[in-house]
Amino acid sequence: MSATTSARGVWAIAMYTWREGIRKKTLIGFLLLSLLVIFGSTFMTAFMTQATVSGNIETEVETKIIKDICVSAISIFGILITIFMSASVVPNEMENKVIYTVLSKPVRRYQYLLGKFAGVQLIVIANLVLMSLLFIIALYIKEQVVPTLLMWSTLLTYFQFLIVSSFTFAISCTSTSSVLPTISGLFIYITGNLTEYLNDVSNRSGTTESGIDAIIGQVASMLYKILPNLRSFDLRNQILYLAPNDPPADVQIPNLILYGLLYGFAGYLLAQVLFSRKEL
C-alpha cells in the first residue's frame, strides 16, 4: 500500500470521526453549557458589582470573577468533552459494527487507530479554541488588551487534555463500552492533578524510622515520577492575578509542550499495542 493511499485512509477516518463527533448530543450539550457560562459570567458580574463596590476596585473584582468562572468552565467542560470523546469513539464503533466494515477494507489497525485519535484531537482542539475565543473576547471587551496570557494557557491546557485523552483512548481500546474508559479518564485527570501530594508524601517519609513509612515513601516517589503532573500545565493563578498581556511566569513552555507530547505519545503507543491483537 502506498503512503498516499495509507494517508488518504487515515484522513478519511479522522474526518469521519470529526463529522460524527461534532453531532453527538452530549458534546453539543457540554459545549453549549460552557459557552453559556462563559458568556453569562460577564452579565452576572455586572449585576454583582453594581450592588457592592465602586470605582477601580469594582472593575478589578468584576474581571477576577469573570476570569475565575471562565477558567473553571473551560477546564471542567473541556476535560469532560475530552474524556467523553476519547472514551467513546472506538467502543461505539464496535457496538454499531462500523469497525468491521472499516477493518475489512485494506486498512491496517494502526491506520484506523491513528485516524480515530486524530479525529478526537480535532474535536478537542476545536472545542477548546471555541471556548477560549469567547473568553478572550469577553476579557478584551473588559480590559481593552489582547490577553496573550490566556492564549498561552489555552495552548498548555490542550497538552494537558492530550495526556488525559491518549490514556483514556488506550483504555477504550480494551473495552466494549465507554463506561470504564470514562471512569478511568476522570481518574487519570484527578490523579494527575494530585501528583504534588505524592511528592509531599515521599519527602515526609524519611521523618520516622518505620519500615512501612519508608515503603510508602518509595511507592509515592515512584508514582510521582511515573504519573504525569497535570498541575504543571495550569496557569489559573497567573490568569487571575497577573495582567492579561503579561508573559507566563515560572514556566518553561517548550519543555511543557515536549512533556505533554511525550506522555501523549506514550498513551497513544499503549493504545496501538493493546489494539493490535484485540479480538473484535
Binding site: S6, R8, G9, W11, A12, Y16, T101, V102, K105, P106
Partner: peptide
C-alpha cells in the same frame, strides 16, 4: 465515498 477513500 468514505468507504471508497479507505481503498485509496
Amino acid at each position: 465515498r468514505f468507504y471508497g477513500q479507505l481503498y485509496g
